[in-house]
Design a binder for these strands. Sequence first.
DNA 1: AACGATCCCTGTTGGC
DNA 2: TGCCAACAGGGATCGT
Length: 277
Amino acid sequence: MPELPEVEITRRHLAEVMEGHLIVEAHVNHVRTARHNGSPGEIEARLEGRRVERVERIGKFINAPLGDSQILVAHLGMSGRFAINDEIAPHTHFSARLDTGDMVLFVDPRTFGFIAVYDEDTVAASGLSRLGRDAWIDPPDSAELSLALVRRTAPIKALLLDQGLIAGLGNIYADEALHKARIHPLRPGASLTPAEIRKLLAAMANVLELAIDNGGTSLDDLAYLLPDGRAGENLERLKAYGRTDLPCLNCGTPIQRLVIRARSSHFCPTCQEPPRG
DNA sequence: AACGATCCCTGTTGGC
DNA sequence: TGCCAACAGGGATCGT
């Protein structure tokens, strides 16, 4: 599923094709794809004739200023992916034809993703304004994260998934960062020592960079593909996520799985010492 | 305010 | 083999 690395790779592809170019024609083929801010027809009207100035990213959100105070906001959700100049796959819910003739397609079987166009004045409603610092481009330093974790009793795994705290980690990279930092996912946020917070931030940067360098993580059964149709190659680099009962690559102990906040968590019970009680 | 539960959705999987 | 329930999860929303 797309998290920060997958969205960043998607952003780069979209930027290469879209930046500086006009959207000549746009189609939104599914009401849920437009649900955040208007109807399919309204989104189409707001896009057609606009020039994409830049394609940017905060956390898992893609945002692209279109000039005249208009901003395209897109999210891949669970199963969304962009494809460029590809054949129309099932569940293609959005398409845009550019003045170059390039076709940008959005494929999203589970429809958790969306395409929206906001005015500068209303973009606060998009969810963008609720995001914390970007986990890769603009991460908090250890002092800032320490402050944010004061009196937080929720499990650190849940806090890492809170996009308002740090934006961009999803279930895969939260598990990977905790495993690399050797911090148990059930540890209350406020219980992390300054040294552990530094390790966690370093681990987070490391797993994100590795994933981006490897083209992101494509799971067997899910939709994420690079916009050129290739699969990412980061799956084989994962050390915790999806490795239930397989040996920890540090110590050989079988990786365990438990559910935290309705999300599976994968961890090494030896390397990642559980909280007392 | 912080936390946890629930819901949205569909392709895939596992049990019978 | 076929059917169906369970499962996967990002983020919004709601109750406590």
